[in-house]
């Protein structure tokens, strides 16, 4: 378990909903609902956080949800309980997933790989537990290739990574580097906020 990352997010948990709960979530709601509406089969959700995404999940699903921060999951407890379906929650590090190989039909992430310390290895770990032909569906913010936004995000990352996420991650490249086949990248705001769909190759 990456204790430094766990401690960082445990510390952020009490104020997380205040900072991310209204503006960002309302703004991103239509896009998240659309992405999550494709949930089917055996689903892994990473990282659940305080459960802000749960209201956007389609009802009636059985979802395995993990997060590295127990404090975040404690904040998520009411949202998990109120979900019209089943969410099984565990504290787990994406780098050390306690699941069998080829376990899941789909894996969803939501603003996750801005914070995973070793993103390519984290994605390889997801690939291990995803069934061949299974889908990785991500809602992520990444760096930008456009100036001056690229410069701004590189500078912001020097500060932001101490208390929360990196702002300049090349997540699409990381997904490809982890061995997934990318099927769709849908830009939501500039080339910064996006949904990514990828599959685990069958062979």
């Amino acid at each position: 378990m990456d204790l430094a990352t766990q401690k960082k997010w445990d510390k952020a948990a009490p104020t997380f909903d205040l900072m991310a709960g209204k503006g960002a979530e309302e703004r991103w709601e239509p896009f998240k609902r659309e992405l999550f509406s494709t949930m089917q089969g055996n689903v892994l959700f990473l990282a659940l956080g305080t459960g802000l995404d749960i209201p956007f999940f389609p009802t009636g699903q059985t979802i395995q949800a993990i997060d590295i921060s127990p404090a975040m999951l404690e904040q998520a407890r009411d949202r998990v309980a109120n979900y019209d379906g089943e969410i099984n929650v565990s504290v787990m590090d994406v780098h050390n997933l306690d699941f069998e190989d080829n376990s899941f039909d789909q894996i969803f992430t939501s603003c996750t790989f801005c914070s995973v310390p070793d993103p390519v290895n984290g994605l390889k770990s997801l690939k291990r537990v995803l069934k061949p032909g299974g889908e990785l569906l991500m809602f992520e913010h990444t760096g930008s290739r456009y100036y001056p936004f690229k410069l701004m995000m590189d500078l912001m990352t020097l500060v932001s990574r101490r208390i929360g996420p990196d702002m300049n991650r090349p997540t699409v490249d990381n997904v490809r580097a982890a061995g997934f086949d990318i099927t769709e990248v849908n830009h939501i705001f500039l080339d910064v906020v996006k949904t990514i769909r990828a599959t685990k190759p069958v062979t």
């Binding site: 205040l18 900072m19 503006g23 960002a24 309302e26 703004r27 913010h141 001056p148 701004m152 500078l155």
Partner: peptide, 29 residues
Amino acid sequence: MVLAMLFALPAGILFGAMEVMLPMKLSGM
């Protein structure tokens, strides 16, 4: 840019994350 980064935090609570922070930094700059 620094002032925009500071004021983007409270503005972001109401209006969004990246959609607020990046344009505000451009405006400030």
